[in-house]
């Protein structure tokens, strides 16, 4: 019989189990995405979130799903899954199938689930950041109390349009949280080689915006920071810039097969000492929340669940050629033919 969980837990045992399960499921889902790519079932560009799970889990579990707005760049699978998007529809989209969130028109980089408040899924570095500010503008225009999570990478933090978005969000006092997912690399270029000042959170300072650097690997710490900042923005209706320190264990994209060009194996192994899943396991163990057997069972269950998602998505048919003209416009079709 398992020991009683300690009484000073930061989260309920049920929540802790759910977060643990979510993190494992995301990691397994991403591994199956990589498998899909290797097998030629997914093409184009594919960017997985392995190593960064605590970041998305911590922040996405602190918002009102379906009410608050979320927007991010192309490393977007975890965000959709955490908003409750059907994993099969996500995987089918990544495989370009009819059963996908966009019936195969978007792909891995362009997942959208508007009813759940997920506004993508964007491929131009920094390009979506003013859109996130625009989502916040709509909320403020209508005098709602929504909060926008506007995720971007450390590479995007150099983009001119990002600075324009910061200025306007501060100028109009928009409830927009700019979350820099700092995984230390802009594709294959290390932080210190792409940013003149590597403390990216300071980019909020010139606009009079609250800003800080926080951890993105220890889920419980992420959850606390996320709650504090989401609550502040919802209450004060002003923007915030957060730099969340993280690290990706996989390559930039599935086609990034020569990571030695920009980092050593030793560096990756060193970073894995703070693997977010292991950090949470340590907490669960130390506080008697979960036995090792239970953790192993969850890891296996989530692996099997991801496998079923992969199979179900792979069963989805390819789009019909006639669909190519659908949704170019809301009310007309473009001229047909070559």
């Amino acid at each position: 019989m398992a020991k009683q969980a300690t009484s000073n837990l930061l989260e309920s045992p049920a929540d802790l189990e759910k977060f643990y399960r979510d993190m494992h499921f995301i990691r397994h889902f991403e591994r199956y995405c990589e498998r899909a790519y290797r097998q030629g079932k997914a093409g184009g560009y594919l960017h997985v979130y392995i190593g960064m799970e605590a970041l998305a889990v911590g922040w996405m579990t602190r918002i009102k799903v379906g009410y608050d707005y979320v927007i991010t760049a192309y490393r977007d699978h975890a965000h959709a899954l955490l908003l409750g998007s059907d994993p099969v529809a996500c995987m089918a989209e990544i495989m370009g199938r009819q059963g996908g969130l966009s019936r195969g028109k978007g792909g891995s980089m362009h997942l959208y689930d508007i009813p759940r408040g997920f506004y993508g899924g964007w491929g131009i570095v920094g390009g979506h950041t003013p859109l996130g500010a625009g989502l916040a503008l709509a909320a403020k225009y209508r005098k709602e109390k929504r909060v926008v999570l506007n995720f971007l990478g450390d590479g995007a933090s150099n983009a001119g349009v990002f600075f324009e978005a910061l200025n306007m969000a501060a100028l109009y006092e928009l409830p927009c949280i700019f979350i820099i997912e700092n995984n230390e690399f802009a594709m294959g270029t290390r932080l210190e080689y792409h940013a003149a000042d590597t403390e990216l959170h300071k980019r909020g300072f010139p606009f009079g915006m609250k800003h800080e650097r926080v951890d993105g690997m220890d889920l419980l710490q992420v959850r606390q920071d996320a709650k504090r900042i989401v609550d502040w923005v919802r209450e004060n209706q002003k923007p915030y810039l957060v730099e969340v320190m993280s690290y990706r264990f996989s390559g930039h994209g599935a086609a990034d097969n020569d990571q030695g060009l920009y980092r050593s194996k030793e560096e990756i192994e060193e970073a894995k000492n703070r693997d977010p899943i292991h950090l949470l396991e340590k907490y669960l163990r130390e506080h008697n929340v979960m036995t090792d057997e239970k953790m192993e069972a969850i890891e296996q269950e989530t692996e099997e669940a991801a496998a079923r998602v992969f199979e179900a998505a792979d069963d989805s048919p390819h789009p019909d050629p006639t669909e190519v003209y659908d949704h170019v416009y809301t009310d007309m079709s473009p001229e047909a033919g070559h």
Binding site: A133, L135, Y141, M168
Partner: peptide
């Protein structure tokens, strides 16, 4: 607005996606 056409249009696209 400030004189920033990409920011203006980007913000308008986001606002339009959200129903304005």
């Amino acid at each position: 607005t400030p004189i920033v056409e990409p920011g203006i249009v980007g913000m308008a696209v986001g606002a339009a996606m959200a129903g304005l």
